[in-house]
């Protein structure tokens, strides 16, 4: 479980990305100026609650923002050295699947129920390889074998309804990886799965990553998945990344009050607590964001300054940033309490 240290070359770089959805009533700032980068063989977790813009971030990276309401209004998405926002729709078709691909949350709906698994796999494979039937068949079998599907030759003729949820999600994974993309975005891929199946799937992803040097963006609401899977974490709140850093930094020394609250409000398996820490209120609507820091109305350390302007980004550690005024040297309000990590962390 060590982060991939050797591969430091950046495969994906996102700079000040803004994706808005324009509705009749309001402008929904689903993604409002986020920046991050992703190195080869690395897993970046994007964590946030529903409606924080994490799925819209994923769709933006594939340029699949729902049209015509949604639009990427600003920013850069540099994938393999090229800004994909400058590409035409035709060029994008070559990028999707081959350079960047996606695994969706619900395996029930991401496969077409009227075609066999083999059919759907071959179609996906056909994008990268145009070959005769028998070699396509063996490629499909290989793809299924890679995701640990038992007896792949027989599974090819199955329809999605004949498979369990875990199996289907593996097939979805096989399809996403069929053209050997450098980056895979996994949008809550295990939320619909049972815990023991989830563990199988997460381990599988890790194995494939170790083999192929795939970079994974793991979108989730669950810090447990992050702890299990990711090398680095970006925490999103109301359309912004409020904190990002190395996974151990974030878990041991979360700086932003929101990150602290999220980590603290999850009950622990390893220790019993009398009372969970909880923050009041709920996230703001992306169509009606407060001025200043978006977490301010729920923040226990809030001061006037927080309502005036969105906080600067402060560097806490190499690669560990957080947007919070309380991290400023001149901070006048209540200092953020020191975070007490869950017991047993020492090892």
């Amino acid at each position: 479980m060590t982060a991939v240290q050797t591969a430091t070359d950046t495969i994906l770089e996102v700079n000040d990305l803004k994706t808005y959805i324009f509705t009749r009533a309001a402008t929904v700032k689903a993604v409002d100026g986020i920046s991050f980068n992703l190195r080869k063989g690395e897993t970046l977790g994007i964590v946030g609650e529903s409606g924080c813009g994490k799925t819209m971030t994923a769709l933006s990276l594939l340029r699949l923002v729902p049209k015509p309401a949604g639009r990427i209004v600003e920013g850069e998405i540099v994938l393999n050295g090229e800004d994909i926002l400058q590409k035409s729709e035709d060029e994008m078709r070559d990028v999707r699947g081959r350079q960047i691909s996606m695994i969706l949350q619900d395996p029930q709906t991401s496969l077409n129920p009227v075609f066999t698994i083999g059919n759907q796999l071959r179609e996906a494979l056909g994008i990268a390889h145009r070959e005769n039937k028998s070699s396509m068949l063996s490629r499909a079998v290989d793809a299924l074998r890679k995701v640990n599907v038992a007896a792949p030759e027989r599974r090819l003729d199955d329809y999605p309804h004949q498979m369990s949820g875990g199996m289907k999600q593996r097939v979805v994974g096989a399809i996403a990886m069929s053209c050997e993309p450098g980056v895979i975005i996994a949008d809550e891929p295990t939320t619909a799965l049972d815990v023991t199946i989830q563990l199988q799937y997460l381990r599988l992803l890790k194995e494939i990553q170790a083999e192929t040097g795939l970079a994974i963006i793991f979108i989730t609401h669950d810090f447990g998945v992050v702890a299990r899977m990711c090398d680095r974490v970006a925490v999103m709140y109301a359309g912004r990344i409020i904190e990002q850093g190395d996974v151990r930094d974030i878990f041991s020394r979360p700086a932003h009050p929101y990150t602290q609250a999220l980590i603290n409000s999850v009950p622990k398996l390893e220790q019993s607590v009398d009372r969970l820490y909880s923050i009041d209120g709920q996230p703001p609507l992306l169509s009606n964001l407060p001025e200043g820091c978006r977490f301010a109305p729920r923040c226990p350390y809030v001061s006037d300054q927080c309502y005036e302007a969105y906080p600067q980004s402060y560097t806490l550690n190499e690669g560990h940033y957080a947007d919070c005024w309380a991290l400023d040297a001149d901070w006048q309000g209540t200092p953020i309490e020191e975070f007490v990590p869950p017991t047993g962390t020492a090892g």
């Binding site: 803004k18 100026g33 009606n288 407060p290 001025e291 200043g292 969105y310």
Partner: peptide, 11 residues
């Protein structure tokens, strides 16, 4: 950092 324009008041 771009200024965030929001609806002026939260009622």
């Amino acid at each position: 950092m771009a200024a965030v324009t929001t609806t002026p008041e939260v009622a």
